[in-house]
Design a protein around this nucleic acid. Sequence first.
RNA 1: GAGCCGGUAGCUCAGUCGGCAGAGCAACGGACUUUUAAUCCGUGGGUCGCGGGUUCGAUUCCCGCCCGGCUCACCA
Length: 567
Amino acid sequence: MESARQEKLQKLKEQGLAYPYRFRVSHDIGEIKSRYEKPTEGRELCVRGSVKKVSRVEEGYLIRLVGDRGVEMLALTSEELRVGAECTLKGKLDRYEGKLCLMDALPCQEEALSPEEVKKEYDLDPGFEEVSLAGRLVTLRSMGKALFGHLQDATGKVQIYLRKDTVGEEALKSFEELVDTGDILGVEGRLFRTNAGELTVEVKSFTLLAKSLHPMPEKWHGVKDVEVRYRQRYLDLIANETARKVFLLRSKVVQSVREFLNAEGFLEVETPVLQHVASGANAKPFVTYHNYLEQNLFLRIAPELYLKRLVVGGFNRVYELGKNFRNEGVDTTHNPEFTMLEFYVAYWDYTDLMEFTERLLSHVVVSTVGSLKRSYKGREVDWTPPYRRYHYFELLQEKTGKEKEFFLKDLEGLRALARDLGVPKVETLTHAKLIDKVFERLVEEELWDPCFVTDFPKMLSPLAKTHRKDPELVERFELFVAGRELANAYTELNDPFEQRERFFQQLKEKEMGDEEAMQMDEDFITALEYGMPPTAGEGIGIDRLVMLLADVDSIREVILFPALRRS
RNA sequence: GAGCCGGUAGCUCAGUCGGCAGAGCAACGGACUUUUAAUCCGUGGGUCGCGGGUUCGAUUCCCGCCCGGCUCACCA
């Protein structure tokens, strides 16, 4: 804590002004901004002005372009321009940090508009509307008898302007004495635009709503230290626009998924996180203890077996959007708790699900990022359906020249192949694991645009129904995007006898050293004995979907509070 | 779990081949009534991740530990 701020808080406490109970807000900051800022729709424009300031940013140079009458707008360009230079730039109009900006601007010779003319069209005159706004004071520029600052929350940022004539000498003095950047401030006043054209509240009165006892992160570089960003995510959200964008996007994705499923007649349900048997996936569970029941429980590794019980119960379309917990390694694509969507549809098979997945994902992608094409790691991902479909063993055959029989029958040959591919610890891997590893090595990375890989070997899929045309396969697909598995789905196995056999097979795998082999769930088999209709089910990794749409390469960037060791 | 890299002011980062610890922003004092990475003048600020060792002297060299990142292994 900073002593100067503590002293100011002490003064506020003495005056009974330290932590007010409420403040009447007329609008969100974002709401007021969008009211007077028209969407630009990425229009191509030519603008002429003189360069007032050049700042180096990640994307190149950020230029403040000023017109004859002092109205300003921004341009992002790779051109190195000198301050004071007259220039004409052409680029796509957008907003950068809330201001009109020509993106990817290049010099041009065409007929050009002035910043005044552009702003007149897109930045409307607020006409001295009276507003009452609140937010965190993130910048402050004192000019003696007047001062400027910006209030910010997750919805946006708005400039405030206090002048002695309007707010009064006493009030201005107490602002200078008591308010720091980082404080939460409420202001009342009227909206206008400054000479430079920025939407601004001319403040009549202000209220300090909460004091920040710590100084804010640096305004230009923000917080870069990932440890601070993850442990104190609030600082990341305050300081870094990109962090705010990612988590707003995540929220939109979740909302959009629900919207789509609800509209398709699905029922959202919640099944136990604490389970007696952690089954439904191949993974090591977390163990916990219930004092009253006097027994160990597991945190679920998947909701699958409970959701299928609900289908037995007559809920024909169910989904659950929630956390799964797996007691395994942590890295850029794995967090011990992660968010999965699982959904089940009675009377469908996996081919119905492929078509449905295309509709679901294209809806989510369009409604969250506004386009079916989205770049990931500098390469475009095209989400436009239909997605290509490949057979599992056809892909393997393409890569190795070897047929299905080789992979399913020639265990030693397969082991040798895996060894040649550099798969570690091949001697200890089970047959199923070997096939899985070889597929991963040879095929997965190349599957960039969304595509379905279908018809997996049965030994990899203990809950999937045997393929109607081939008893060695199951009716299962995985959806791959950008080289990673995004969804996993199958026609559900609903024969209780066969299900029991498959669980036994898993127990054998476990004895042969596969720690993650699936656990037997007798109660689930009992449910199947009552009759589960033909059903198709699917799981989609929400964190990974968000990673793709947000164009980030670590799962920690899309989880607000990722798992870290205690500091 | 293994290998490599990192931890210096509130933040972003320099730096010390072992000799009083540096900048910008933030803070503090002053000037400035349309600024916007405001500007100008001045001031203060450090357990150099933690613990040991070597040394006259360690933030720097050595050893151990903690935390993080990347790669690999396990997994989605």
